[in-house]
Design a protein around this nucleic acid. Sequence first.
RNA 1: GGGGAGGUGGCGGAGCGGUCAAUCGCAACAGACUGUAAAUCUGUCGCCCCAGUGGCUACCAAGGUUCGAAUCCUUGCCUCCCCA
Length: 375
Amino acid sequence: MFTLTHSDGAARRGILETAHGRIETPVFMPVGTQGAVKALTPQHLEEIGASIILGNTYHLMLRPGDELIARRGGLHKFIGWNKPILTDSGGYQVFSLAERRKIEESGVRFRSHLDGSTHVLTPESAVDIQWNLGSDIAMVLDECPALPSTPEVIDRSLEMTARWAKRCRDRYLEKISPGPLSRMQFGIVQGGTFPELRAKSAELTVAIGFEGYAIGGLSVGEPNETMYQVVGETTPRLPADQPRYLMGVGTPIDLVECVARGIDMFDCVLPTRNARNGQLFTSEGPINIKNAEFSEDDGPADPACQCYTCRNFSRAYLRHLFRAGEMTGGTLNTLHNLSFYLDTMRRIREAIAFGRFEDFRQSFHRTFARRALIS
RNA sequence: GGGGAGGUGGCGGAGCGGUCAAUCGCAACAGACUGUAAAUCUGUCGCCCCAGUGGCUACCAAGGUUCGAAUCCUUGCCUCCCCA
């Protein structure tokens, strides 16, 4: 159940209640594809204030298998995380594993990246698998087309995604016993970068009726400004009283800009993956901790950050850990990056509550560009 | 003392007459990463520069053979292994 508590321009603040707890929005959801946010434990996630994490249908279906997880009592119990979980449907793997799959009206045929075996993901099985996992929020199976594509291709794709969404919804309704805290299912709006196609996809998806709506198919190579524009044009076409989730986005600036356009939920691998690859997000912009300039830098990763990493360790040490290939480096970097993301969302929520989101947005842009300006 | 192997760019290690400023790995330096096939991938990596089918100096040292040498010969210096 979603309750809007504040709005400031197009930016909104709200509370999404689930069977595993409440989520304050706008929220950033760390990605834990295979049932783990890489390099962290659930304890870390609790400590940095994560309120919901992601899991992935495609990956968990292949290994260890959704039925195995169901037999262990569901994903929450299996991975030791008692807070909400959102599962992606495998729709993104339709895009990222393009050369290993074939799309048909009935569903997607994958050749497993693990052992080459063939697996079929249909709208119905995507629902069933997520049901087995026991996620609080399940996504419909969609097709995430590569950009750029012609309007004709995007149109055909979005229409099939809408037909799939309906099949997902029908399957979901067979399983669910409705209630304020029962499991939720979100539809996904596609349409590439064409406003009229986004509008069409939104209309088709909203007509089916879901507990929330996602915007998918963005951040796949198009310019940032284009993405902001598409988001800005799409959110007004989604129900104001339901959560809006921008899938796979983004950089810290993207978060601020898309909250400004009415987005409530985000997920992205950037803070976790880049942490393991040595890029740290700071209030003054991103730094690459492996760079020689930090070899004797005794300061924290981010002078404005209060996370465990920043309270206890220097840039010089983090650089050393990275170069030495120590796993602890990946953990400390991930802890920091996610802390930065979650903290940014906290500040966004606070600013909205005080009606000062626009001020926040501008000062965030200024400080985040600081390092770039200095150098 | 006798016998054998060898000295190549920061390191390891290819190359054994021209297509070699020299394969490859590591290290170093930089970049990328957006619903995770990623603790991954890419680029640079002798010096100079107007950055190019450019200039210069180079494969232990010094001589030599050759149109041409990291590659062949001589001498020197230095390593390592085996036997005494």
